[in-house]
Nucleic acid binder design. Structure first.
Lengths: 170, 170
DNA sequence: ATTGAAATAGCGTCAAT
DNA sequence: ATTGACGCTATTTCAAT
């Protein structure tokens, strides 16, 4: 048993496994380059980091295994794909039971239109980033999946007018 | 002149160019597959969409040109990369001058640590998603780049405990 | 762990439909 | 616009350091 918990189903999630190996400059260059262009070729990455291509292949595999690179994903235009209404919904919980948090965290990301889910400190507990096909679909989503939950005390919806990615290197 | 504006420098940004071409099922499959795995090979994508590889190459180029796929980026572990403190900062403006919005929108994404920037409706105007090396660096960021701005009336910082991506297809 | 070289797999061009 | 085949490039495996 590696990282188990006595209570039924309750798993405390620490980002990857504990013996966090040190990353050198090569790793950082690879991660950063791939963050900027997720389709950068192995040869490009190798050149950027100043290593052999075969080394690069191995390094990349390692970064994925370690959970330093958790995935690479295309960013798509929601309007073009039929979900022109984007919103951020702040959710406040009624209780503070750990189980409620875990259920929401597990279930919400599976729902169509959910882009991101933040668990945050402060007056609100969660922030849900969604893309909906219409304003009425957005309303239904909030009512059915957020306000409708017994553990949710309040939900407040803000429309997203604009959404841009950071450009600077990490 | 296609989409110009009389005022100096003031550009109204409509997501891509207006004659938005219709996307068929093939386009949607490609976008969706690439959204799930940004490093999917051309052959894989072609198979998923049921088209020839050469057609796939052309389709992909088209999707990028049209702005349907705006980029593909690796998701990295901020803790491993030395920025363990993640936060969402709500920013309220004092005035409502368009120029102020545009400046913030242009400048903030360039600052190191800024991950995303949302322009939202409601009591707050912007939501800034940042990753900092430490809590004190976070404080400095908010003071120097947000509260410090003359056009910013108020900034409220929430720590991000957890951040997950949506899993369902668009 | 890193490398270069050899084998494998993937890609884009093009002529044809 | 889509296709399959061909030539070219990129990637991975592997033996050696």
């Amino acid at each position: 048993m590696v990282e188990a918990n006595a209570d039924e189903g309750t798993v405390t999630r620490h980002t990857p496994q504990d013996p966090r190996p040190t990353l050198d400059e090569v790793d950082r260059v690879l991660a950063e380059t791939l963050r900027r262009d997720g389709r950068a070729t192995n040869a490009t990455l190798a050149k950027a980091a100043g290593i052999a291509e075969s080394t690069c292949t191995a390094r990349l595999r390692r970064l994925q295994t370690l959970g330093v690179v958790t995935g690479v994903h295309a960013v798509v235009d929601h309007v073009a794909l039929g979900r022109p209404v984007e919103a951020l919904v702040s959710v406040r919980f009624s209780g503070q039971r750990r189980r409620d948090f875990e259920r929401l965290r597990a279930e919400l990301p599976m729902l169509p239109g959910v882009l991101q889910l933040f668990h945050v400190s402060g007056a609100n507990d969660y922030l849900v980033h969604v893309a909906a096909r219409s304003t009425s679909e957005l309303r239904d989503f909030v009512l059915d999946h957020l306000t409708g939950r017994p553990d949710v005390a309040h939900a407040e919806t803000s429309l997203v007018f604009d959404h841009v990615r950071g450009q600077a290197p990490l």
